[in-house]
Amino acid sequence: MPVPLAHVIALSAILFAIGTVGALSRRNLVVILMSIELMLNAANVAFLGFARAWASLDGHVMVLMVIVVAAAEVAVGLGIVIALFRNRESVDVEEVSLLKW
């Protein structure tokens, strides 16, 4: 007997909520990027749950695309973190508020 789809979606929602809390409340830029990775993984769980329920492989292909986007995002994001640390000696987002209104 397979896992009910509602439980898979619940796991996805819980992980997404934890990632949102981390991205909004932490101030260390590296941990914020990790939280965004967690949110992308929560989306992957939902994709795979629906793919299993509808017996369709399109969701698996979407997850591969999400993994590629996540890898690209980490490379660019951590490049920005290093450039930021070189200029400011800090990765605290509260100290980088030039574009904030």
């Binding site: 890898a71 490049g79 450039a83």
Partner: peptide
Amino acid sequence: FLLLAAIVGAVVLA
């Protein structure tokens, strides 16, 4: 193309 852009971007930024 996305991966290529990310590689170039990461090198330029870092």
